[in-house]
Simulated scan of single mutants.
Amino acid sequence: MPEIRRADARRNYARILAVAEEEVAAHGAGASLEQIARTAQVGSATVRRHFPTRHALLEAVSRKRIDALHARARELAGTDDSRAALLEWLGDLVAYCVTARGLAAALAYDGAGADPVHGNSCAAALEVAAGPLLHRAVRDGAVAAEVTVADLITLAVGLALATEHHPDPAAASERLLRLTVAGLSPQG
C-alpha cells in the first residue's frame, strides 16, 4: 500500500508542477495556488503538502531555468575574456528573469534569513554556477574584488522587477544593465 501512495504522490507532484509552470508563465509569481489545485485536480492541501510556501513552488517552477543558467556558466568558463564571460552570463540571467515570469520572485531575497543567497535554493545554485566566472574575473582584475554573486543576483532581480511593466521589458532591462556596467560617467 505505501508504494501505491508514493506513486500517487509522485504523479500528483508532477501534475501540480506542470500546471504551476503554466500558471506562473501566464500570471507570474502571483499565480493562484487555488487555481493550480483546481486545474491539477487536487486539493489545496495537496498543493501545500508538496509546496509548503509560494516561494517553494516558484523555486520548483524555476528549476529548469536555473539548470540552463548553470550549464551556460560552465560553457562560458572556457572563454578567454573573463569579464566578457561574466557579463554575458549576467546578461543571460537578466534576460531569463525578465522573460521567465516568476524567476525574479524565486531569486528575490525575502528577508527570512540572514543570507540572501544560501537561504534560497535557486540563488544558491546560481552562486555555484557563477562563482567560478566571478572569481576568475576578479583574479584577472576585470571586476572589483568586492562584487559578490549575491550582488549580481540582486542586480538581475532588481532590473527584472523594475522593468516588468515596461512596454518592452527585455530592451529596457538590457539598456539598464549596460548603463550599470558602464557607469554613468561619459566615456572619454
Rank of each mutant, 00 (worst) to 15 (best):
58 L>T: 11
187 Q>S: 11
101 R>A: 15
44 S>D: 11
63 R>Q: 15
47 V>G: 01
151 D>A: 12
24 V>F: 07
173 S>L: 07
151 D>N: 15
132 P>Y: 01
8 D>E: 12
165 H>P: 00
36 I>S: 04
106 A>E: 10
113 G>W: 07
65 R>N: 12
121 S>N: 03
57 L>F: 13
67 D>S: 12
123 A>P: 10
71 A>I: 12
93 L>K: 06
53 T>V: 02
167 P>W: 05
77 A>H: 14
63 R>P: 01
42 V>W: 02
141 G>T: 10
8 D>H: 13
51 F>V: 05
186 P>L: 06
147 V>P: 06
22 E>R: 15
12 N>P: 00
10 R>V: 13
42 V>K: 03
65 R>F: 11
81 D>K: 06
7 A>I: 08
181 V>C: 05
92 D>T: 07
41 Q>V: 01
91 G>T: 09
50 H>M: 08
23 E>L: 02
63 R>F: 15
121 S>D: 08
100 A>K: 08
78 G>F: 05
141 G>Q: 10
80 D>E: 08
9 A>G: 00
71 A>T: 14
183 G>K: 11
99 T>L: 06
179 L>A: 13
48 R>E: 00
77 A>E: 15
21 E>V: 13
156 A>I: 08
71 A>K: 14
143 V>D: 11
144 A>W: 08
129 A>V: 05
20 A>Y: 01
155 L>S: 12
85 A>P: 03
167 P>N: 03
39 T>W: 01
184 L>Y: 11
110 D>A: 02
138 V>T: 06
53 T>P: 03
130 A>E: 13
51 F>L: 01
119 G>F: 00
168 D>E: 12
4 I>E: 07
21 E>M: 06
92 D>K: 04
23 E>V: 00
43 G>Q: 07
179 L>Q: 14
135 H>K: 15
145 A>H: 11
175 R>E: 15
20 A>Q: 05
11 R>S: 13
175 R>G: 07
43 G>R: 02
55 H>R: 14
185 S>M: 00
108 A>W: 03
142 A>I: 09
182 A>F: 04
161 L>H: 12
17 L>M: 10
31 A>D: 08
166 H>N: 09
152 L>G: 08
75 E>S: 13
64 K>F: 00
58 L>R: 03
140 D>Q: 13
34 E>N: 04
124 A>W: 07
96 Y>N: 11
98 V>T: 14
3 E>S: 13
22 E>V: 12
27 H>I: 07
81 D>E: 12
122 C>H: 05
18 A>Y: 07
185 S>R: 12
42 V>E: 01
99 T>P: 00
143 V>I: 15
31 A>Q: 09
82 S>M: 05
183 G>L: 05
115 D>N: 14
71 A>L: 14
26 A>K: 13
1 M>Y: 02
